[in-house]
Design a protein around this nucleic acid. Structure first.
Lengths: 268, 268
DNA sequence: CGATCGTTTGACGGTGCTCAATCACCGTGG
DNA sequence: CCACGGTGATTGAGCACCGTCAAACGATCG
């Protein structure tokens, strides 16, 4: 059932040849653990089921928008960007995928990929062929649970993206982006203060729906304000407190705080 | 809360008269069909499994942000808005849920609801208690498939929301919103040209990340251009062709196209 | 070391946010 | 029946933010 597709490595085939075990295969419990599932309660017979692994060099495309959907991918290490072509040639970045993120599920209902996924650095991803996936889920409820959870996270993540975009002021958007990335780094066990952004300004700008010059300007503004230390793609959060305050602001600066009550408070 | 009033439903052609059976219970195959699943291949023993139904009056809250997640809900008829409180009191609309949409799945990984869902009109929703859901999915692979598909749609829908928000010009955002709603109406078997928006301008504005006055202005601008006929919350699409063109535009109007090749074409 | 790409900074003009007034449409009560 | 708020939608005026165009700067790599 569980078809072991040979990963079409974009890597040079010979150089990373397996010495001891094939590096293109990992046991199932690794995947379950990555997804935050309860790997311990995997049936012993299942925990070493082979899962295909695929390695991507920087700028290599994992899948292409519109291509038939054959596998679900889960990022193991590295990072990718998901982009959609917006008909007029404009490239819209829709997400940055980090370890544990699922790629491809959003295309299930149409049978084809919704976005192109491009590696931002050398990365590896698990590949779960759709053929046999249902059987595998039935066989391993633990994997099923883990996948459900991952999808739930994915959905919440999409909401977070919308929340960033919904901010009116560009600086607020960027602050939310930084905090969001920091939160994800924390979830992965990294430091939330030291960010190494793998994507260029233009990609961030695309995700946030602003001009890339504006991203630059907002970075320097916040750096001047002592919120960040920005050195190219290395971003250090110096004052999470005030950074969160800025991310919370519905409207932009107002740094000289006129302590008058908030003008906002809307609707319902 | 749950006001059980006599449904005076002339709306649904529901031949499954609520007179005989409890109107708060529906057979499983109805839900599967709503989700776009293959109801025909349900096991005969399963197709009449009872699914709880809940009725909501306008402005009634189905679930509250932060509340523990007990059930997955699927909209049966009517519509709801999903809102999040943005810490500073601002109400951010994150989605409009239409029949077939799943509510609550995004909170699965945290065990609590991510957003508050409020009925925009008299609505009914299916309720699938999480307890026993896994067993039910195991028992009915057809339901499982249908749920997977619905979740995939949900994810793609979130991407569509982001795509609307990512448009730089507010008029473009609104055009995309109209077309997106039209597409959803088509998928539900309604006319794509006649929209009856159940939400107020402020809610649309919140979803699109613009001021509500701007929504008003954009509506009148597009109406003056002959793209729409706007009468309060009834919106008729007069020229889908040009409407799509406007939705495609990365930057705003510039209808007389300065034939210079597009400056864009990015990345990758 | 020169070419290319990414990043930053500047100047300018326009879009859209804020503030505010007006209008339309209600359901309520006089 | 018509005044009376109350809510939502529309329109106007002013100004700041940010998108566009442009150039300088920096980094990386052949």
């Amino acid at each position: 059932m569980l078809a072991l597709m040979r990963p079409q490595g974009s890597t040079t085939p010979g150089s990373w040849a397996a010495t001891r075990s094939d590096p293109r295969i990992r046991p199932l419990h690794d995947l379950v653990r990555l997804l935050g599932g309860d790997a311990a309660s995997l049936a012993p017979a299942d925990e070493r089921l082979p899962v295909a692994l695929r390695r991507l060099d920087e700028d290599a495309a994992l899948v292409h928008e519109g291509a038939p959907l054959h596998s679900l991918h889960i990022v193991r290490c590295g990072s990718l960007k998901c982009v959609r072509a917006l008909e007029d040639g404009y490239q819209q970045v829709t997400a940055f995928a980090l370890p544990g993120d699922v790629i491809g599920f959003d295309g299930l209902h149409r049978g084809q990929h919704i976005a192109t996924a491009v590696a931002l650095e050398t990365s590896t991803v698990y590949a779960l062929p759709l053929a046999g996936l249902q059987a595998l889920r039935q066989r391993c409820p633990v994997l099923d649970d883990a996948l459900q959870l991952a999808l739930s996270r994915q959905l919440a993540s999409a909401a977070a993206t919308a929340e960033m975009l919904a901010a009116v002021a560009s600086e607020v958007r960027l602050a939310r982006f930084i905090l969001w990335m920091a939160a994800r780094m924390t979830a992965l066990g990294w430091s939330p203060r030291q960010l190494r952004l793998r994507m260029c300004r233009r990609d961030i700008a695309s995700l946030l729906g602003v001009a890339h010059e504006t991203v630059s300007r907002s970075f320097t503004t916040m750096a001047d304000a002592g919120l960040l230390k920005v050195e190219n793609r290395d971003v250090e959060s110096l004052d999470l407190q005030r950074l969160q305050a800025r991310a919370r602001a519905t409207r932009s600066l107002a740094d000289g705080r006129p302590p008058g009550a908030h003008p906002v408070a809307l609707a319902a």
